[in-house]
Amino acid sequence: WVPTKREEKYGVAFYNYDARGADELSLQIGDTVHILETYEGWYRGYTLRKKSKKGIFPASYIHLKE
């Protein structure tokens, strides 16, 4: 896992994603996520609506905010 280059990196989910394991994070369309790390097509972070739950999710489900 590699920390993100920018201190504040955010994105928005444009697909729903159902977590398949305890380390994964479920997403709903429109969720804003804070991205902490990246690795081979995956991000690690949390949604702003539930900051206490961190997990991994596919990068392809996220539109990055500039």
Rank of each mutant, 00 (worst) to 15 (best):
V12Q: 04
T4G: 10
V2K: 12
Y17C: 07
D31F: 07
K9Y: 09
V33L: 05
W42M: 01
Y61L: 14
I56F: 11
R20S: 07
P58G: 03
W1G: 09
N16A: 13
Y10W: 15
Y61A: 14
E7C: 15
T32N: 08
G11L: 06
T47L: 15
R44S: 06
G41M: 05
S60W: 07
I29Q: 07
G45R: 03
Y61D: 02
P58H: 03
G41E: 06
S52V: 07
A59I: 09
S26W: 04
G45W: 07
I29M: 07
E24H: 06
G45E: 01
R44Q: 05
R6W: 10
I35W: 01
I35E: 00
Y15M: 15
E40D: 13
R49W: 11
S26T: 10
P58C: 08
F57R: 01
L27E: 00
R6I: 10
K65W: 15
A59M: 09
A19Y: 01
K53E: 10
K50T: 11
V12L: 05
K54Y: 13
T4L: 08
H34D: 00
I29K: 12
G21D: 09
G55R: 01
G45Y: 08
F14N: 07
Y15K: 15
F14P: 00
E24W: 04
L25T: 00
E24L: 05
P3F: 02
N16Q: 11
D18H: 12
R6T: 12
W1S: 07
S26G: 04
E8T: 09
A59C: 10
K9G: 05
L27M: 02
A19R: 01
R49Y: 14
L25M: 04
R6H: 12
L48S: 09
E66H: 14
L64D: 03
F57A: 01
D18K: 13
R49K: 14
D23Y: 07
V12W: 08
T47G: 03
D31P: 02
S26N: 07
K65R: 12
Q28D: 06
G11Y: 04
G11N: 01
K51D: 09
S60C: 14
K50H: 14
V33Y: 02
I29F: 06
W42I: 01
F14S: 08
K5H: 11
Y43N: 00
K65E: 11
T32E: 15
E8R: 09
P58E: 03
K51M: 09
T47R: 15
T32H: 13
E24M: 04
T38L: 07
A59K: 14
D23E: 12
I62E: 01
K5S: 14
P3V: 05
W1P: 08
K54W: 11
R44H: 06
G11M: 04
L48Q: 06
G41V: 05
E8K: 09
L25F: 01
Y61I: 15
L64E: 04
A19E: 03
A13L: 02
K51N: 08
G45L: 05
L48Y: 08
G21R: 09
K53T: 08
D23G: 12
G55T: 03
Y15L: 15
V33H: 02
D18E: 14
V2Y: 11
A22H: 09
L64N: 01
V12R: 06
W1C: 10
I56Q: 04
Y39R: 15
S60M: 14
Y15E: 15
K5D: 14
T38Y: 13
L64V: 09
T4C: 15
P58N: 02
P3N: 05
K54I: 15
